[in-house]
């Protein structure tokens, strides 16, 4: 019943998108409308469907090794999911590097279940017809941190190094258009067309990098994680393509999450 309702809402939303761009003015009524709409939508967010699917994938023995993910250590001990997302990225001694949530989930799927990285990295983002398993699982894991304060770990030297490296990457201008992340996300109050561009170098705006991800994106009606968001921003930055769930992405996510630390993560969202 609830699922049917959510599907109906999802269909309605898909019909509404894309947003009428021409309406935007400086005070941005489009953004205001969207915020109202989002508040209603989040009552029955289609993202919950993917959370449910992700939970099932987490618990079910799968892959060449026919194992579940219940022994996966997300940083709080094997199998502990509650609160783990809000405390990542963090250092993992078994791989001797910092990992964000999706990178860690992919790691567990490889080591515990026997999946192959090449296969998982081939088509890592959702399309109209397919939602990759790591996306659903990340959605499930993230939802179990809803309402918690972001507390990415910054004690291990490699955690501190990841922050500094992520910061360098954020400001690194290159590519065909000379852009860095900061070209679009380094100044207050700017926008591209009608889309407001948060300034992620400021703590109170950096939360907007994390909030609502993983999110159900109305454009196309698909579920996406931050891996997708950053991938698409690198595309718009006219860079080459980042490797999925790579250490470079974990460093960038460390920079963004640490800038937002201490603020409440509200759980799965709706994105335009």
């Amino acid at each position: 019943m609830r699922q049917a309702l959510m599907l109906a809402v999802a269909a309605a939303v898909a019909a509404v998108a894309p947003w009428p761009q021409a309406m935007a003015q400086t005070e941005d009524p489009v953004a205001a409308d969207f915020d109202k709409f989002r508040a209603i939508m989040e009552e029955a967010n289609p993202a919950e469907l993917f959370e449910a699917k992700g939970e099932q994938l987490w618990r079910t023995p799968r892959g060449p090794k026919n194992a579940s993910l219940e022994q996966c250590d997300l940083g709080l001990g094997p199998g502990v999911v509650k609160g783990a997302y809000a405390q990542m990225p963090r250092y993992f001694a078994d791989v001797d590097r910092v990992m964000d949530a999706e990178a860690r989930i992919v790691h567990c799927m490889i080591t515990l279940q026997g999946f192959k990285r090449e296969d998982l990295a081939k088509k890592p983002f959702s399309s109209a017809t397919k939602t990759p398993d790591p996306v659903s699982i990340t959605t499930y894991v993230a939802a179990q941190s809803a309402g918690m304060k972001l507390a990415p770990q910054q004690t291990h030297p490699k955690e501190k190094a990841a922050y500094e490296i992520g910061k360098e990457i954020f400001f690194y201008r290159a590519g065909a258009y000379d852009f860095s992340c900061a070209s679009c996300h380094g100044v207050d109050g700017q926008r591209i067309r009608t889309q407001p561009l948060p300034n992620f170098t400021r703590p109170e705006q950096a939360i907007r990098a994390i909030q609502g991800w993983p999110g159900y994106r109305m454009t196309g009606g698909v579920m996406h994680t931050l891996q997708w968001r950053l991938n698409d921003c690198f595309r718009q930055q006219r860079f080459p393509e980042p490797d999925y769930a790579s250490e470079m992405m974990s460093a960038l996510l460390t920079y963004l999450t640490v800038n937002a630390q201490g603020q409440e993560y509200k759980g799965l969202g709706i994105k335009r």
């Binding site: 190094a161 065909a176 080459p240 460093a251």
Partner: peptide
């Protein structure tokens, strides 16, 4: 990536963790 300056670390990681896609080659880094 972890022993030298953050900038050197960032350059080394980017060199390793990007790939050419379509017209967007690694030279763009």
């Amino acid at each position: 990536a972890l022993q030298s300056s953050p900038r050197d670390g960032a350059l080394a990681l980017m060199q390793r963790d990007f790939h050419a896609e379509g017209i967007a080659g690694m030279d763009r880094l």
